[in-house]
Computed example of a mutant assay.
Amino acid sequence: MLLLASLSLVLGACGVQPSVEGAAPHPVEPTTVPQPAAEVEPELRYMKNGKFWDIIDRSLEASGGSTGRQAVELEEILAAMPPEQIASFNATFVSKNLELYTWELWGAAYVLVGGCLDDCFEYFRNWVVGQGSDYHQAVKRDPQVLADGRLRSDVEIGDAESLAYTGADAYLRSSGGRELYEDYPESPSTIAGEEPWGTAWDEEEVENLYPGLTPLPAD
C-alpha cells in the first residue's frame, strides 16, 4: 500500500495521471485546423464623370478622327492604369452607352445608316460615347444633332464596336492575364436585354420623324 502511494506521487510529479480502474477517460481536446479565408470578390465601383470623360477626350484627341484608331489609343491609356480602375472605367462606359438606349436615338441611327439592327445600334451608341461628354449629352437631348456631319460614314459605326472591348483587353494586360469578367462578374455589358425607353416607331414612317437627317454614304 505504501509502495502504491509512492508511485502515485512520482507519476503526479511528472504530469502523468495514473490510471484508475473504472474511471472515465480524460477527454482529449480536438485539434483545430485553420481554414483558408474565403476569397472575396473585389467591389465594382463606377469611375467619376470627370476622370472618365478626360480619358475619352484623350483617346479622341489622339485618334486623328479615326474611330478604329481611337479604340487603340483608348486601350493604351487604360492598360497603364491599375486593374480596379480599368474595371471602373469599363462599368462607366457601359452606363453611358445604356443612357442612349432609346427609341428616339435608334430611329435616328436607322435613318442615318439606312436600317440599323440591335448590334448596329449598340456600336452606334459606342461611337456617341467616344465623342465626349458634350456631344453625348447633346445627342441624348436631341438626336437631330447628328445632322452636324461629325459622323461621316457607316464604317465608323462598325469600327466603334471595338470601343466597348478596350476595357476588357486593357484589364487583361494590366492584371497579368486575368479576365475582367472573372474578377468582376457583376460588370455590366453594352448588350441591352430589354426594350429601349420611349415610344417605338414604324419602319415605314421613321424617316418623317427626322427631317434633318440624311443617310450616310456607304464606303
Rank of each mutant, 00 (worst) to 15 (best):
L112M: 13
V72F: 09
G149K: 03
A80C: 07
K96G: 00
W127I: 00
C120D: 11
V145S: 04
G107Q: 04
G68S: 15
S95T: 07
R173F: 05
A160R: 00
E122W: 00
L74R: 14
S153K: 07
P185T: 14
C120H: 06
E161Q: 09
A80N: 08
A79H: 05
N97H: 04
D142N: 14
R141S: 12
A168R: 15
G132H: 06
F124S: 02
R152H: 11
E161H: 11
S88P: 12
A80D: 13
Y181W: 14
D169F: 08
W127H: 13
V155C: 08
E75L: 09
W106F: 03
K140E: 12
G132C: 04
Y184H: 15
L98M: 09
D183V: 15
V94W: 00
W103C: 05
A80Q: 15
K96E: 02
G177H: 04
V128L: 02
V128A: 03
N97G: 09
L146S: 05
T92G: 06
Y184A: 03
R69D: 10
F93L: 06
Y181N: 11
G114R: 13
E84W: 06
T67H: 04
F93S: 09
I157H: 02
Q70H: 05
I86R: 10
G107E: 04
D119K: 02
P185S: 07
A164T: 06
R152K: 14
A138K: 10
Y135I: 01
V145P: 07
L105M: 11
A80G: 05
E186R: 14
E73K: 12
S175I: 14
A71T: 12
S95V: 03
E99V: 00
N90K: 10
Y165P: 08
S175R: 14
E161W: 05
T67F: 01
G177A: 09
E75R: 11
P185V: 09
T166V: 15
E73L: 08
E99K: 02
R152S: 14
L98I: 00
